[in-house]
Amino acid sequence: MAKIVGGINVTHVPYIGRAIANNLQQDPYWKPFFDGFPPVHQWLAKVKPDVAVVIYNDHGLNFFLDKMPTFAVGAAAEYSNADEGWGIPTLPPYIGDQDLSWHMIDSLVEDEFDIVTCQEMLVDHAFTLPLELFWPGQHPCPVRTVPVCVNTVQFPLPTAARCFKFGQAIGRAIESWDTDARVVVIGTGGLSHQLEGQRAGFINKEFDMMFMDKLVTDPLWVTRYSVPELVELTGTQGVELLNWLTCRGALSGDVTKVHGNYHIPISNTASGLLAMQVA
């Protein structure tokens, strides 16, 4: 059966794309963010995943409000990035893993998660930039991919408890896939930030630190909060932490922290990075 080697959660601010394109990794503004990644690169070199299941939210590239799935799973041979309208570079396509996609779809629906399936799916910065950060400068990306999109755009959003259970179902799906593939689960977005309204610029360092700590040792801690409470605590976009929680749900057994990094600000965002491994 396939093995889940661990999970990595990371912020997905669009301007990271521009910083990479302009080689600003050692610029004083960006350095505290990019310096978080070498320990993750070393860990990935050690655990050697073949496939990445990437849990993210689309920001109006593939999905619009005409059709807004709560959970969607990609089932394409290849996933293209495209012009997102805000002037960040478009990245080359990513290779899919249709065998895992359809195995996950079968297993998730059997597990009563009635997801939307996508044989064509554009992937935005929330999918592409984490892969660029984890495997810098490698085109094509050295892992095959399965995108999993969670609605964090139009309320009602899935509850934290539902996202954790969805993650658990993703974990069961991967671990029942009859191959010897090694799989890393990635969750993107957050941490605290709010783009809109008079409260724009809201950041909650104290909550973020607690969340990053609890996510490793006691992930159900965050499920005590309703989605509106999470918005109040972390901002309208900070609620993307649901993707981190979904990723964590996929990890079972003894989970330990490999490496973490946290820096304020990147754009309007408290940036976070958390790699976890499964014993």
């Binding site: 409000l65 139009q154 309320f155 709010q194 008079q198 409260r199 724009a200 509106p228 918005v231 109040e232």
Partner: peptide, 22 residues
């Protein structure tokens, strides 16, 4: 729920803003 300076983009807002967002 009222969160000062914050609007949750819910069904009411999605209906109201559809043309603008499109």
């Amino acid at each position: 729920r009222v969160i000062p300076g914050t609007t949750l983009f819910d069904g009411d807002m999605a209906r109201k803003g559809y043309a603008l967002n499109k």
